Amino acid sequence: MLLKKNIPLKYIFGKIKYEIALVAIYTLVIVILHDRFNLKHMAIPLSVPMIMGTVLSLLLAFRSNQAYDRWWEARTIWGAIVNDSRSFSRQVLSFIDDAAYDSEEINHFRERMVRRQIAWCYALGQSLRGLDGKDGLDRLISKREVAHAAKYANVPMALLELHARDLKYALKQGWLNEFQQVTLDQTLSRLCDAMGKCERIKNTVFPATYSLYIHFAMNFFILLLPFALIEYFGLIEVPLVVAIAAAFLLIEKMAIHLQDPFDNKPTDTPMTTISRNIERDLKQMLNDHHLPETVANTDHQFYVM
């Protein structure tokens, strides 16, 4: 996720540097041909690109809104994951009275459940980004559980299954009553629903024809723009056309990046950062003082992953 400060111009204009170079060369060629050969017939009425620009602006605004809705939905889902992870851990820690049972066994059970929930958050984020969901989980869960998760194509789903097995075991042992087990299972169901919503966003491609038509219309608008300004500005139209084209191109690039919130880019939903915050909160609930360190990346301070 991009932060409010320190976003370098190199990052912003680096997304469109080749397009801007082509626009500058194209416009310069038009100006040279017009001035050297005095081709007055090359000019077109300014109203033509103005009308196209107005329509294109509306289409780009609509597309940007739709892309932002996808990004915001992803962020909202991860906000719910934070709440449900805290609720699940609180329920696990508070429902079981360790004074009535073998304290060591109960403590091991509760710690295993909470740590597995932390691992689930990391595994989900990595899986959504197309990375190995098992990477780094061995510091949170046992090797046996990592080996179990390796058998599944969907690692987060495997961890939820282990949650369900442990809840069933706790019910049989009498550590939980049926009402408590149902309450915990409902929390797991909400986590599973959140995972499914993320996968829906990840696997639903933004309509390709819609993006393609807008891209073609924008390119046609940029191609016409030098012919409409040539009579008014001459050589000055080169930076002017470049500036106008850059504005449209940047809006299009912004929409392209926002429409895929799980694509392992700086504009992503900050799933790793959110998972790290969940780990911090849940470990504090366990009275574990080995908290995750705050990552300070001096080279990329303008975004968090």
Rank of each mutant, 00 (worst) to 15 (best):
A99P: 04
C192A: 08
I30K: 04
D35F: 13
P239Q: 11
T27D: 01
E145T: 07
G174L: 09
V205S: 12
L176P: 02
N65R: 06
L250C: 05
V55P: 03
V182L: 10
Q91A: 12
K5P: 01
P261S: 02
M157K: 11
G125M: 04
C192E: 13
W175N: 00
N154W: 04
L250H: 06
N287Q: 08
L131E: 12
K10M: 10
L60K: 05
F37M: 03
Y11R: 05
I214R: 08
I44L: 10
P292Y: 01
K202V: 03
E199P: 01
R63M: 13
A228H: 07
L33D: 10
L184R: 05
N297Y: 09
R75T: 11
R116P: 00
V55H: 02
I44M: 05
T298H: 15
D193P: 00
F216P: 02
S85N: 10
V182H: 15
S103N: 09
L140F: 14
L22E: 12
I278M: 03
I16H: 03
K40P: 00
E104L: 14
L250V: 07
D98L: 05
A255V: 04
F179I: 13
N38T: 13
Y152A: 12
L162K: 13
V238Y: 00
K197I: 11
I30N: 05
T267G: 00
W72M: 11
N177R: 09
V238A: 00
F262N: 02
T76R: 14
S57I: 08
L128V: 11
K17G: 02
W78T: 05
V242K: 03
F13W: 05
L60Q: 10
R110I: 07
L167T: 07
M157N: 12
K168A: 13
D132R: 14
E231V: 07
A164R: 15
T204C: 09
A164M: 15
P292N: 05
F262S: 03
L56S: 03
F227I: 07
I32S: 09
L191F: 04
L58P: 02
L60V: 08
R280W: 13
R36F: 09
H215D: 12
R116W: 09
D132E: 08
V155D: 01
N83A: 12
Y169C: 08
D281M: 10
K151N: 11
R190A: 11
V182N: 14
W71V: 01
S103R: 15
L33Y: 10
P207F: 11
E19A: 08
R90Q: 14
L240S: 04
E19S: 13
Q126W: 05
S85T: 06
L137P: 02
E105F: 14
H257T: 12
R139D: 13
P266I: 03
L191D: 02
K253E: 11
I44C: 04
F227G: 02
